[in-house]
Each structure stands twice: as structure tokens, then as C-alpha cells.
Nucleic acid binder design. Structure first.
Lengths: 224, 224
DNA sequence: TCAATAGTGTCTGTAAGACAATATACC
DNA sequence: GGTATATTGTCTTACAGACACTATTGA
């Protein structure tokens, strides 16, 4: 398994798609590249896998985020491997892409430049493709997991949760149905606190935090 | 992006989890390793990524399957990347694992040794872990995709489809509900033929084949 | 009191699960 | 007709979507 002298090793990298909530917008973080190729252009944060430093590829992604962007994710998950000559035609490479959720504070507090996910300027390499797959994954998981909640700063209200689900799914959700369902899942627990009305006179909302589990039981295709 | 002389490149491999249907059983294919380490033990088919031969990691997986196992998959999809020192403690490596569905004929016609997925002897490296994640993925996708149909030889009957979904999901499915749903999805088309009764006297069943699309719309968490 | 937002109750249609009934083959 | 399997019909229940109603705050 270890010796295969005839074959050169491919370049192995990680690329991170940093997602965050900025007001009413879902935004994606980029960094201006400081090395060739594509030096000076914004691109997804990424870097080489360093076997001597990184215990695994997740650790490599975290290192890249911390070192290059000064960012700490709420959630990080493998998206897929993108490989071949697509990225840099000069050399075959293999990149493990990660979907990364940052807290809303990160929009102001990191080295990243954020832009609306649907208003990004074209990115170099295959990064547009990686972003598209990330958005598809996020939307899909909004259908059967609590992933969108990671975008919110805790504690949050049910209307906020409702809004972030609408945003990530890209469709209207009935308020009453949403509340019933998400409260049934056990993903939320009340903090006991409520908001104090900000703008004038409105009813205060109960505050919640996430419970541990990120996922919940998906519905079955063919019944039970 | 290309030059980073200070850091050695990790070993990049692919590992394939070959799934097939053998009678009433879901089986997994292994090969006896012909190289160190773990020489002589059965393990998942795998091999090095060869940038000069393989256009991407999917191509690498296909090459490994064809060259080492003489097998041609009906379906191949990335499962995840497993990385670090887990596999071979002697060297950090990065393996892209693939879920692979073989047709039932492959059980007799390939170099692979097949064993029931729940009766496998312990495999070397982290292969048991990879198999476990594969089975979880298969089960999950049975809930919202037509993936299990790839396990069947075409044409097939609705009772056969029903059985393979029960098998992959690990639970009983109501026959009538299953038929209603899967016919609604548009994943099946009638061939116009029917089976001829094999054992004595039974009603013939209509025969179907898969339509192109592998996936269908998942149900939404929070409604529409 | 009003305005604004949070939260609940109720009706309805759809679809899944249970299960019985019917259909079609060969003996 | 009898048996075995395929296929369909029906009833019930659960739940999502629609939507209106109530609750709670500060002005």
C-alpha cells in the first residue's frame, strides 16, 4: 500500500466554502489570492494538505480557515472531491471541498470578503462549480436537517429560525407549520429568556438555542 | 497553487465498496490483497490515484474496478474522504471512498469475493468503517432516491423492486403504498412484457426498466 | 386605544399504512 | 375449482398548507 514508485503523487488540497448570514442575505466568503496562479483575484480559501501538520483533511480545512481567514466555523462538513486538470490546467490536482458555516459575527471579524451567494463575481478554477454544489447541498439539507440553524447567533427566536430556513430553501414556509414541526424535532430548547422589543411596540419572542444533534430522521421514500 | 516545495504530498488512493444483490442478500465484494501491508487478507478493492492515467478520481475508481476486479458498475458515487494515519499507521494517506453498485450477474462473473454485508469478517485498515458509512448512505438514499433499483437486473417486476427496497431500508414496506409511490415518481417504465410463471401457477407480473434519472425530489423538512 | 410582531386553533386535502378484495396464471 | 402470486380498492389516520384568530408588548 505504501510503495508505488512508478506513479507520481497528485497535488492534494482543501477548499472551503464559508457561508454566513449577513442581515437578510446569505453570503459567501472569499480571499484575494496572494500567490500564483490567479494572484490578486478573489477565490475560495484553500491550501495544501500537510500530512505532517494535519491529522486529517478536516484538520487541514480548519487550519486553512484559521491561518488564512482567522475564522472558526460552527459547522464543517465534507462536500465532495473535485479532481483532475480542471482547477489548474498546469497540474492534475485533487481538492477536498468543505461546506463551512460561520457565525454571523464572522462577517465583520475575519479576513474574508463576503458577497451575496447569488451575486458573486466569477471565481477562478472550478470554484464556481464548488459554490453551486455547496448551495445545492445546503438547500437539500434544509429539507431534512437543522443545518440552517447554525447560521444564527444564539440565542435566536422562532421567527429568526423561520426566516433562515426560508432563505436557505428559497421558498416560502408557512409559519404555523414550521413552528409545529421544528418544535417537534427536539432540535431547539428554550433558554427561558425572551427578546425585548427593539423597534417600538411588539410582542416579545421566546429565545431558543440549538440542542446538540445536527440531524434528524428524514422522511422515508417508501413508507414505513 | 502549484509550488509548495516545503510540504511532502500525501499518498492519494481510492477505495471502492462494491455492492450487489445475491438472491435475497445484499453482499459486498472484496479482494485478497496481493501486496503488503495486510497481504493475503481480504479487503476492499483499492489503488493509487494515477494522475497521468486517470482523468479524475472517479476514473481512478473505475480503473481499479476494471483492472483488479473485472467489474463494471451500474452506479458509482463518491462516499467521502478518509484520511490521516488511520489506514496504514506507517504513512499518512488520503483515500476517496466510493459507493459502487454492481449488477447481480457480477457476483459470479468478477474476481471479487462476495459476502453478506452483515456477516463480513473484520477488514483491515479503516475498511469496516467505510463499509458502515456506505450502508448508512445506501439506506438513507433508499428513502429518497431510486438507487436501490440499480441493484436489480433489468427488466424487473414491482415485487422485486419492493423487495430490494425492503432489503436496503431494513424495514417492512406496505406493498400497495410502495407501488403507488414508485409508479408516481416516473422512475419506472413498463417494458410491455410480463414474466411467465416460474414455479407452477401464479399470476404473471409486469416488467419494468429504470428510466434515466436516478434521483427524485426529496420531501421537505419544513413544508412548502 | 393602535400598530406590530409573536404565537395558536381549525379546517381541509393529500398521502401513507393497514388490510381486504380481486385478477390471472398453471395445475 | 384450487393455489399462489400480482394488482387494486377502501378505510383510517397523520400531517402539511392555508388562513384566521388570539396574545403581548410599547407608544
Amino acid at each position: 500500500m505504501v510503495n508505488e514508485p512508478d506513479y507520481p503523487r497528485p497535488l492534494a488540497t482543501v477548499d472551503v466554502v464559508p457561508l454566513a448570514l449577513a442581515g437578510e442575505r446569505l453570503v459567501i466568503g472569499t480571499l484575494t489570492r496572494d500567490a500564483e496562479p490567479e494572484r490578486g483575484r478573489p477565490a475560495l480559501p484553500g491550501g495544501f494538505v500537510r500530512p505532517q501538520e494535519d491529522s486529517d483533511v478536516e484538520a487541514a480545512a480548519l487550519r486553512v480557515l484559521r491561518q488564512k481567514a482567522d475564522a472558526d466555523p460552527v459547522h464543517l462538513e465534507q462536500l465532495a472531491v473535485f479532481s483532475g486538470l480542471r482547477r489548474d490546467p498546469r497540474e492534475w490536482s485533487l481538492s477536498v471541498a468543505f461546506l463551512c458555516v460561520l457565525p454571523p459575527e464572522a462577517v465583520a471579524a475575519t479576513q474574508l470578503d463576503f458577497a451575496a451567494h447569488d451575486g458573486l463575481d466569477p471565481l477562478p478554477f472550478d470554484h464556481d462549480h464548488i459554490v453551486a454544489e455547496t448551495m445545492a447541498r445546503l438547500r437539500a439539507k434544509a429539507g431534512y436537517s437543522s443545518l440552517p440553524l447554525c447560521l444564527l447567533a444564539e440565542p435566536f427566536t422562532l421567527p429568526q429560525a423561520h426566516d433562515v430556513f426560508e432563505l436557505t430553501m428559497g421558498e416560502r414556509l408557512d409559519r404555523a407549520a414550521f413552528r409545529r414541526k421544528i418544535l417537534d424535532t427536539g432540535f431547539l430548547e428554550e433558554t427561558g429568556e425572551t427578546t425585548r422589543p427593539v423597534k417600538g411596540a411588539t410582542r416579545p419572542a421566546k429565545l431558543y438555542r440549538r440542542t446538540q444533534t445536527l440531524r434528524f430522521t428524514p422522511r422515508n421514500f417508501a413508507g414505513r
